[in-house]
Each structure stands twice: as C-alpha cells, then as structure tokens.
Computed example of a mutant assay.
Amino acid sequence: MSVPREPSTTKLWLLKELEDDSRATDLAPGELAGLRAVAHWIKTFIVNPHDDLGRSGPVCPFVPRSLDRDLLSLAPEQVGERNLAEVVEVLQGYQRLFTSAQPTDGDDATYKSIVVVFTDLAEERAAGFFGDVLEQLAMPSYAADGFVMGGFHESSPGTAIYNPGFRPFTSPVPFLLMRHAVVDDWKFFLDDEEWLAQWARRHQDSGAHALAEELRRLPWRTRPDRATPPEEV
C-alpha cells in the first residue's frame, strides 16, 4: 500500500511550461502525455466559444482569465493501488497547497486553480472514482473553506447550464479541478437544495444581490398562462 506524500509546488505545471521539452524531462512519459493532453483540450476547447453552448463567450469564462494570470496549474497523480482514503488524503494535501500558494488574496486569488490529472485512471473507472471522492470531499470542503471541486472525464454526463444537450466536461484524461467559490456558482447549484443552501450561507448579501441582478434581466413578472400581466398585483 502506497503512503500519500504532501504535494509540493514542484509538481505544479503551467500550460506553457509543458511545451518546454527540456523541462518536461522531469515527468515520466505517461505523466507528460496526460498533462499535455489536458493542456491541449483546455487551449483548443475550454477557452473558445462553442455553437452548442447556449450563450456567447468561451466554454468556461473563468479559464482564460486564469491562464492570462498564470494561475492555472496542472499536477500529475497516479491512483495505482491507493484506496479511497489515501486518494482523499492526497487531494486534501493539494487543498493545503492551493490555500498557501500565492496569491492568497485580492482579485487574482479568485482565478487561482489546480487541475489534478489522474494519468493512470482508466475511463471505465472514472465515474465511480469521482463519485466516491467528491462524496467525501466536495460539500465539506465547500462549506469549510470555499473550495469548488469537479471531476472531468471522457464520458462525463454533466451538461451545460444553458443547453442540456451539450456536455462540456468530457476531458481526454480524467482530472479533478479545484478553485475558489464565487458568487456566480449559484447557477450550478440551483436545482440542488442542499448545495444552494450552502451557497446562500457562504455569500449571504452578495448572493442576494447577484440573484437580483440576474432576475432583472428576465421577464419573471410575466405569467406564462396570461397574455398580459394581471391588474390585481
């Protein structure tokens, strides 16, 4: 049984660093291929618009800003013979690394993120793996420390907010994303009462203002069963 080790900043790679063959010799061949596959997917898909997204702008508006600031890092990990408790311990180490890494405050800190790439995780295991890991970590980490975590893999069933027929979480190599919570996350939580309650506790007044701003753009006062609004309101 392997013993989890505390991750260090030497395991974190910016996308542009993976293009440097002289530096990439520090990685095992399987690790390098996995990181480069995810980096290519981010650069060619995630940061670009898509006709099926249901809105304008890149697939993830967060990522281009993170890349511009050199605040999105990739890290290789292997599942191997690790059990669930060991994997959770490894990811908690990345959470501690994330928390201590610069920047720790200000606007730039909002765009800090770590992508932990599981370079030896077979696709047929990915759904169950992420389900187990996130059941242990996702909500406690969000409630206590404001981490948002999500699993990405080739057959991920997750859909876009504005188009349920579009699946933007289908990465070529399985990975787990961790980033800071932001007020706009309510869009991901709206259909889950427990998560929405956690979001409301975290953001309080700023959350109420964000929802109000969104509602002002929508015809929410109009009842769908009436041609004109009722007079007795």
Rank of each mutant, 00 (worst) to 15 (best):
L32N: 01
L32M: 03
L32W: 00
L32V: 08
G34T: 10
G34K: 09
G34L: 11
G34W: 03
G34A: 07
L35E: 08
R36K: 14
R36E: 07
A37V: 11
A37H: 14
A37G: 06
V38Q: 03
A39Y: 03
A39M: 08
H40K: 15
H40E: 14
H40W: 08
H40N: 15
W41R: 14
I42P: 04
I42K: 00
I42T: 06
I42N: 05
K43P: 03
K43F: 02
T44W: 02
F45I: 10
F45L: 05
I46V: 15
P49K: 02
P49S: 07
H50V: 12
D51H: 05
D51G: 13
D51K: 14
D52R: 02
L53F: 10
L53H: 02
R55H: 04
R55V: 06
P58V: 13
P58A: 08
C60T: 14
P61N: 09
P61E: 10
F62C: 06
F62N: 14
V63Q: 12
S66T: 06
S66H: 08
L67S: 08
L67D: 10
D68E: 09
D68W: 01
D68T: 06
D68K: 14
R69N: 13
R69Y: 12
R69T: 06
R69A: 14
L71W: 01
S73R: 14
S73Q: 10
S73I: 02
S73T: 12
L74M: 10
L74R: 06
L74D: 07
A75F: 02
A75K: 02
P76A: 12
P76Y: 04
Q78Y: 09
V79W: 01
E81M: 11
R82A: 07
N83D: 12
L84P: 05
L84I: 13
E86A: 15
V87M: 12
V88G: 08
E89H: 00
E89C: 00
E89N: 02
L91K: 10
Q92G: 00
Q92T: 12
Q92F: 00
Q92I: 04
G93Q: 08
Y94F: 08
Y94C: 04
Q95N: 04
Q95I: 03
Q95K: 12
R96F: 03
L97A: 11
F98Y: 11
F98I: 14
T99Y: 02
A101F: 04
Q102K: 15
P103E: 13
P103F: 07
T104P: 08
D107G: 11
D107N: 12
D107L: 13
D108M: 10
A109K: 03
T110V: 15
T110E: 12
K112C: 03
S113T: 13
I114P: 01
I114S: 02
V115C: 06
V115P: 00
V116E: 00
V116S: 01
F118R: 04
T119V: 13
T119L: 01
D120Q: 01
